[in-house]
Design a protein around this nucleic acid. Structure first.
Lengths: 366, 366
DNA sequence: CGCACAATTGCAAGCGCTTACATTTAGGGG
DNA sequence: CCCCTAAATGTAAGCGCTTGCAATTGTGCG
């Protein structure tokens, strides 16, 4: 694909000049060794300066309402003067609340979940929580290790995207005894709370849309994950129920890429396939499909129509604009954060299973 | 842009059925309240079962080499039997090592940094570290708050992308007394270690490339951040040095989107601009530029050429393939992780300023 | 078989906070 | 001006681990 490659002057000198392991090292054991290294001020020091007990400082920080005005002022000054930053590790240990929420996603690159994580992190941050990210791997290959390291941090809540796992994993998660939210799906057997939608319903809706539009020869480009497969399943069901044949499809390994879309359609057409619409389980592959169609001098949607999934930021601004399925990822994140915060307050949100729905966005491509 | 919108059946019933705040709540104070809620097994319990002291269990976990074989076996069993998960908060407090690395990025959505975070997180996880993500906001608006909450977790290292900040912020960061790595740039005045490249050099290289290709009327679409501005500056310099005029440009607020590219070019051309090449400070906007050009029935690169930045995953598979600047984000992440790990071992990597370079990838679009 | 030394293990003192409970101080009414 | 109650603050016991140091056990060798 790369027609040619030109190294830039400065790159000649610097790129990979030091290999990933060919770095010179100087031992200087004084740095970061043992506990002598850091000397951040502690509560006790601030308390001494302010002339109060450590308990008062702690209260000033955590429940300002209970300390008197003049004390508060002295404490404020002492904190400012010392540049005190509370040690949340110690606080978490003592209070048994870490103010940490763990979120597990397959991966970060090209992830459809990033808007969810973004909005969730923002919302939780407002409430004093930090998000600890766990990357499960595109095939969930790191799940057990990630779960263990995450649980070791004693998070106050867990957000999971598409982790199924066997009974032992479920047990391990449940034994943490913290709120768990599964997002981006509606599991048949939820661990706890859920914010998601039915992927099969999406597939079915897209199938009905395709039929309504009068397309006769759909071709499916699907990712290999369970959720994408559910969508494909729903799509096929919709067609079968109307007496159509099961549509041809190709399945690619995650993560889904633009190239897969291009490749998938190219291979299909090169082997004689003549689709009038290509349905993708991701806007990324849909984008590749569009490129492939155009590179063959065909017209979208007249010769071949294209449908994506996700309504990613770029979908509306392709040429032609991409017809796709909108999932409000930010809303999922906000809802998840909200449920978690409710639970942290000791409330039991009802319902604890929130179906966020989806929407087919009809644009020019199909 | 949305030609029409169709709600899917199931969506009618469920979408926003519960508003974001209209949820019924049941108080059940027994849940997650006070310290009675959790009863995870502790070191002491495991020790009792294994018939050894807590110190031995701790050693088994952290320096297995020093415990004898038969003891190790007993401990292993006890751990398995109890389902013990070490409380890393307590461990961190006691050892003054949190095994947490904080990473600050502007945002997650459409972020060019995601491959860096991904590879960094993976590499650090291997070594027993978790990554705590801090979202600074597209205009660094959350920096102070995020820094404080991050430092409170006592991370063992800090990774920063594009945080400048005044002297007081610098002081606060340095006072944490932990390794700091600034990535994706070469700051004139680094806090500590650096893994990045010169954005101005990128701009200059692109400028030279544009000249070499014989383009006469470039138009720039730039993001508003300091890094994108450096690239624009470098680009202009390259042209000015060769006696060309400063190229016209438009600057958009981050985050950079496909729409900005479309809009930017459309506005420029509608007001009479006749560029023969559009240079973008992001592949995202380049993608929008391409769509806009094609929607006007023009040819890429014959009528208007396009150059992007980032070599994001889709760039090679657009039609035509996008000429862009490759930055190896994964390598940045790995290098940063490596530096951090070296430092954690008490070594001082040399050099501590790593320039990763870049590469102009010539494809069909320019 | 006894001793020096190394390899294991145990003891116990924290790490820096939170919070139940006790104590002190402030405020109000009679 | 005193007593009662509420508000503010202090005391001190942990939270669950790590680790310096001491004690114990094991090993090799004379």
């Amino acid at each position: 694909m790369r027609a040619s490659t030109e190294w830039v002057a400065i790159a000649y000198e610097s790129y990979d000049l030091w290999g990933e392991s060919g770095v010179n090292l100087t031992d200087s054991s004084d740095y970061l060794r043992g506990r002598a290294a850091r000397t951040a001020p502690t509560l006790a020091e601030v308390a001494a300066i302010a002339g109060v007990s450590t308990a008062t400082i702690s209260r000033f920080l955590n429940s300002p309402a209970v300390v008197s005005g003049k004390t508060a002022e002295r404490v404020r000054l002492a904190i400012q003067q010392t540049g005190y930053v509370p040690n949340l590790l110690a606080g978490a240990l003592a209070s048994n609340r870490s103010r940490l929420i763990a979120a597990m996603v397959p991966s970060l690159t090209q992830s459809i979940f990033s808007s969810t994580i973004q909005s969730m992190t923002d919302a939780l941050f407002e409430a004093g929580y930090n998000v600890l990210l766990g990357l499960a791997g595109d095939h969930d290959e790191h799940v057990p290790a990630v779960i263990d390291s995450i649980l070791g941090r004693r998070p106050d809540g867990l957000i999971l995207t598409g982790v199924i796992g066997g009974p032992e994993l479920r047990a391990r998660l449940l034994s943490a005894n913290i709120p768990i939210i599964q997002i981006w799906d509606l599991p048949a057997d939820p661990l706890d709370m859920v914010v998601g939608f039915s992927h099969e319903a999406v597939g079915r809706a897209v199938g009905q849309y395709v039929l309504k539009k009068g397309y006769k020869s759909p071709f499916l480009i699907s990712a290999g994950g369970v959720r994408a497969l559910s969508r494909r399943f729903g799509f096929s069901r919709a067609l079968l129920e109307q007496g159509f044949a099961e549509p041809p499809y190709v399945v690619f390994d995650p993560p889904t890429t633009t190239r897969q879309g291009r490749q998938g359609l190219a291979d299909y057409m090169d082997s004689g396939g003549k689709p009038d619409v290509v349905v993708c389980t991701s806007d990324w592959s849909a984008q590749g499909v569009m490129a492939e169609i155009q590179s063959r001098g065909l017209k979208i949607p007249d010769d071949i129509a294209v449908i994506g999934f996700g309504d990613l930021a770029f979908a509306a601004d392709l040429e032609p604009a991409l017809t796709t399925v909108l999932i409000d990822g930010s809303q999922i994140g906000r809802q998840a954060a909200r449920l978690l915060l409710q639970r942290a307050k000791g409330l039991h949100p009802d319902p604890a299973i929130i179906e966020v729905g989806f929407q087919i966005i009809e644009r020019a491509s199909a």
